[in-house]
Design a protein around this nucleic acid. Structure first.
Lengths: 347, 347
DNA sequence: TAGGTCATGAGGCACGTACCTCAAACTTGA
DNA sequence: TCAAGTTTGAGGTACGTGCCTCATGACCTA
């Protein structure tokens, strides 16, 4: 029976009293308004520290009669995973609204760095507190991120990080761990050894390379009887991936497994269904979307590794609130958990 | 670029205007105070519906200068998983406080229905909005839950449900799916067929039975070459489990896998480390705790299925807020995702 | 018809913060 | 030393809700 002793949270009044200044001065310090001597500001900061004061975000938003605005820039195109990210944002809307947050989604043509950069540049700090972007590494975007940060907008990267930029936070899975997990599972699935084909979207994408590296590491270390064929590039395109898989299956009748670490899973499933093999083939793919879900149900895919879009959006929202509080610096950059799905635990 | 049109949330003022009554009357209806004719209350309800009004929980808590109080009753004893639930509550404290919530934890001697029932009976509705309990099915507790509900405390069950009671919500994994997943993985791990030993804590526990049933289903349907030895009861006790596993390993030199669907994993790991087998043994256990983590790292355990205590506590808190809003009825009782951990994706 | 009960309205204060105005106190430079 | 500027204090209003008091009017019953 160890109840916590509940001490009232410190308020701006407490801070003012502790610092020996007026409410107005505390307010000026808290909200970065001018007209406070450095020495006075220091007294206030000290009082804030010693009281452990943290602005009451909800009272603050209420007083401004204003929602906390977060804009998600999500690639548009044929990638189902990106759609599910956007859907996850939509699913959060009502709950976010109850917490005085407003989520907006902007779909950007995939890999269109110019439009994304322009979008970031066009954000008004008064109408947007936080931007969440999914992007590849482009100098143009790096600059736009730094500019937005300078204007007072907290920028966070989602799925794929933008190291070297002023982004406040990265939300995504550990892709190396995902690759290692795939190898670890396939290794156990094929105790007799054999050949595994590896398909990537592109060998220029950071997340795909990370997965590949993790996959290779574990295979080399723990399962030396397994050989990798590839990696091949399917460019995340269903048609191209389908042709690739069909050719692989025809040329390697003894193939033991396939690891598709990119997208284009509709093509993967189509090729597998067509190929009517007699001996079992163990297949691992990424992202729980309509095609992979169908593949799991039909038995053509054994395991799907998932980024958990809902979890990622939830983290992004939590981080946005943390930055609005000003406590963002203490945010741990711990990666999202990798979802592992079989036919038997589909959500 | 599809921004959402942001319409201001409806307030009590809007409701009053729409219903053609005063603020005081809306207040009386919203907070269940007496002195409103049924016909008038109906008008107010209609206005609430048509405006989609939902009380601003934070303003409400602020006005009452009161936190939303949630009490977690968590079993005490040797069970590491229960400890990690308590730790998950502790981890949420600071964030919850920022959202005007106060979390208290009470550790109850495991399976001590009397103390739990007394704890529920002793809750003051003014000091506690929501109780979250981990319990087995006992009539005594069922009655205490119904009583607490009658006094205005929302009760939620965690990990194991209490069907037939007035509990508002259940938070936990789908144990049938967990058992099916274990079978599906072991089936793929042992393509040659063989024998799998199954160990439960007790065959009187609902969650253990559910796991066992799921496991049996998938094995029978998809992997007929695998035979189950057991189930044996380890009573979630490390020493007993260790003896059991040691005996199993000695008597079945050709054992292909072990599924421990209960606790007592320290004993499982100890027995496995002692046994120095030559041929690989595939082992699946439940709950990511210190012993199972050690087993994964050492290679004695292949896969751990996890309830994800942090996720469960998060859900419990979200549900408590939903009930405080009065929107609890629309809460979907969708189960928490099952965490699947290999050495390669340990968090 | 008087006295009573009940339903409702009007309005105020509180919660913690933001943002505004006005006046007073202080500092600085010539 | 005085004028101009800067810094600070005091206090108000607002946000959306809860909770309280008081007044008014409607209705019922003796």
């Amino acid at each position: 029976m160890n109840e916590q002793t509940s001490r009232r949270r410190a308020t701006v009044h407490d801070v003012a009293r502790a610092a020996g200044v007026s409410l107005a001065t505390v307010d000026r310090v808290l909200n970065g308004r001018p007209g406070v001597r450095a020495a006075t500001a220091e007294k206030v900061e000290q009082a804030i520290q010693s009281l452990g004061f943290s602005r009451d975000l909800n009272a603050s938003l209420m007083a401004r009669s204003r929602d906390l605005k977060v804009v998600f820039f999500i690639p548009d195109g044929s990638n189902e995973f990106m759609d599910s990210l956007a859907e996850a944002v939509a699913r959060r809307q009502s709950q976010a609204l109850a917490d005085r947050m407003h989520l907006a989604t902007r779909r950007i043509r995939a890999l269109d760095a110019g439009t994304l950069a322009a979008g970031l540049d066009g954000l008004d700090p008064k109408a947007c507190d936080c931007a969440v972007i999914v992007t590849s590494e482009e100098p143009e975007i790096l600059e736009a991120v730094d500019n937005a940060t300078r204007r007072g907008i907290a920028v966070m990267t989602l799925v794929s990080d933008l190291p070297g930029s002023a982004r406040k936070h990265f939300i995504g899975i550990d892709n190396g761990a995902a690759g290692r997990t795939a190898a670890s599972l396939l290794g156990r699935f094929l105790p007799q050894g054999g050949k595994i084909a590896v398909i990537a979207g592109s060998l220029h994408l950071r997340d795909h390379l990370d997965r590949l590296a993790g996959f290779r590491d574990v295979l080399a270390q723990d399962f030396p009887d397994l050989d990798i064929i590839g990696p091949f590039e399917g460019h995340d395109a269903p048609a191209e991936t389908q042709a690739l898989v069909a050719k692989l299956l025809a040329e390697h009748r003894d193939l033991g497994g396939i690891y598709n670490l990119g997208a284009g899973n509709a093509g993967l499933v189509a090729a597998l269904e067509e190929a009517q093999r007699c001996q079992p083939l163990r297949v691992i793919a990424h992202e729980l979307t309509a095609p992979t879900r169908a593949g799991l149900m039909a038995g053509s895919i054994d395991v799907v590794l998932d980024q958990n879009p809902d979890g990622e959006i939830r983290e992004a929202i939590a981080a946005a609130r943390a930055f609005a509080l000003g406590t963002g610096r203490s945010l741990a950059a711990d990666p999202i958990e990798i979802g592992i799905f079989l036919r038997d635990n589909l959500r």
